[in-house]
Design a protein around this nucleic acid. Structure first.
Lengths: 320, 320
DNA sequence: GCAGTCGCTGCTCATCTGAGCAAGAGATCA
DNA sequence: TGATCTCTTGCTCAGATGAGCAGCGACTGC
């Protein structure tokens, strides 16, 4: 991306050449004689036109991706991989598109994970639905954070994990515990329980993780599920929370906001998540820009699946 | 533009190939081994992607043109040439862009016209302004329809012609007559006058014409100039008028709407205009779609300079 | 079951295109 | 003015690409 400025006449020639080349499918040679210049000059003009952004090439397809952005994300945040899908004109389908992309990625992931640790939530549901039957041959699934149990959506978390496992030809191991308990001691006690301890152990040794992130707001699933009150969340936000990852609230730097609350939360810890070989975060949408930044910049994930607008927002800051 | 449908898997491959080719600048060979297919298959997938409109290439530049649309216009309406400029995001600059394009075209017109017949109006003013000093060496300009004289913009018509002539190194011949007279006899009398007759003769023998078209509405320049009342125009519209060309109102088929009025109008007749070797109509903007269609489809011009939206509207009807 | 047809595949070959290089045209400075 | 430097230009050459063709398999109708 050179920023060499062009003379006005060269700019006009560039435009004419670009039109003849891309819209009229003429060869550079033909364009040369048409414009009275050599074919090499035409090639250079086209190059300049590309550099100056005069020629815009877009791939219009719901399943398209944005490779240049993916590369930038990888480089900027030191990710192993990044998946960026274009924002659909209809914003309501965005979550679906991203889920599809995540499902695609999961299916193509090599080496195929033996055990996949998953969180739960709306996004994970969508991914589970988007995965095709037989997306893998024998992938076991284990929940990495406590499930929903006390609200209307009871069972959803379980369904998600089971669906992913079934379609992947493996078994699901559920974490039979609330997401957040009222006292630290209770959490220690339940984690000491043989069943729960076994699941957590499995979770800790999973070969890959798949999770999403929530926004720190009153509409969070954790509030919805009754684990937290809107006031609790407001307090967390006051302390700097931008969102939650596997049930744990983090600030813009990816640090735990409320250690006390963290101590009452059941499931894989952020440290374990950070140590993972492969951890896929699926985070998309206007509201999640902040959490996405926190996750990406604090090494909480090795792979980020997101949308173009979020990717641009992440790359915006600190671009010279 | 083939309409061959693709299988879902080929479509996905097309998209991936297009991304790798256009966004990642990989060779078809590399893409082939990456996707596990031969490079020829990659080439074909890219071809299909282009055919299906998955790959959208746009040239982003105020002076850009839309060559494929120009070709379609030429073919559909049997034009000698067509110039289509992209619609700017800021609609207020559209007239300026089109005027620039018309000026460019005029400057590049070969053979260089010895005498150029021009009408007057806002669009012609803009073109005159857009023409660079010395756009031609010795092009004489002659007005082809009666000028504005009785309104605030008096003199504009003259200025337009003079400017074009001066910048082209030639002289301007003005038509010293009102656009529309009150009685047919007066028109005959004034046209019989030696001065006027001489100008009209010159106008009739011009080697090229440049004119715009007006919309049939109360905001027309002819109303503005006091030649017609809003009621007159309303009546014309009732009779089927879509707009005016060199002061003469035509219907959707390019026919004179009111023969009586036509008989009172001074200047080149539509028949003469239709017989011209080169007649350049510059018509752009939402409001002028109907006149543009009438002009293009009734052979009133051999060259049409317009904007993308208008071109699309013209091509829309009767597309199978 | 079998010939005919159609569409896809991989190939050859000619053409197109970009990287890199040497020469020339200006610009700059002493 | 002359020397030097920089930017542009036209070129060579190798690699990339598209057109066209023969072979293959699948499907169809008898």
């Amino acid at each position: 991306m050179e920023s060499t400025s062009m003379t006005a006449s060269d700019e006009m020639l560039s435009v004419r050449a670009a039109e003849l080349y891309y819209e009229d499918a003429k060869t550079q040679d033909e364009i040369g004689s048409l414009l009275g210049i050599t074919r090499w000059k035409v090639g250079r003009l086209l190059g300049q036109a590309r550099d100056h952004g005069i020629i815009r090439i877009e791939i219009v397809h719901p399943r398209a991706r944005r490779l240049p952005l993916e590369r930038e994300l990888r480089e900027r945040f030191g990710l192993a991989d990044a998946i960026v899908v274009p924002n659909p004109s209809d914003a309501s389908t965005l979550q679906l598109r991203v889920a599809e992309a995540a499902a695609d990625y999961l299916q193509a992931l090599r080496p195929v994970p033996k055990t996949l640790g998953v969180s739960w939530g709306r996004t994970l549901d969508d991914i589970a639905a988007a995965l095709p039957e037989g997306w893998a041959r024998g992938v076991d699934v284990v929940q990495i954070n406590g499930g929903v149990s006390l609200n209307k959506r009871a069972g959803t978390a379980a369904t998600t994990a089971v669906t992913i496992a079934q379609k992947g030809g493996g078994h699901a191991t559920l974490l039979p515990s609330p997401a957040i308990l009222e006292r630290r001691e209770t959490r220690l006690a339940i984690e000491a329980d043989r069943t729960v301890a076994g699941v957590l152990e499995r979770a800790a040794s999973a070969s890959a993780y798949l999770y999403s992130a929530g926004v720190a707001s009153a509409s969070s699933v954790l509030v919805d599920s009754g684990y937290l009150t809107p006031d609790d969340v407001a307090e967390l936000v006051r302390k700097g929370a931008v969102g939650d990852v596997v049930g744990r609230y983090i600030d813009a730097n990816g640090n735990i906001v409320d250690p006390g609350l963290n101590e009452r939360t059941v499931g894989l810890g952020l440290t374990q998540l950070r140590a993972a070989q492969t951890s896929i975060a699926v985070i998309a949408g206007e509201a999640k820009h902040h959490v996405a930044r926190a996750v990406a910049s604090s090494s909480l994930c090795t792979v980020l699946v997101t949308d173009e607008a979020t990717a641009l927002a992440l790359l915006e800051e600190g671009r010279q």
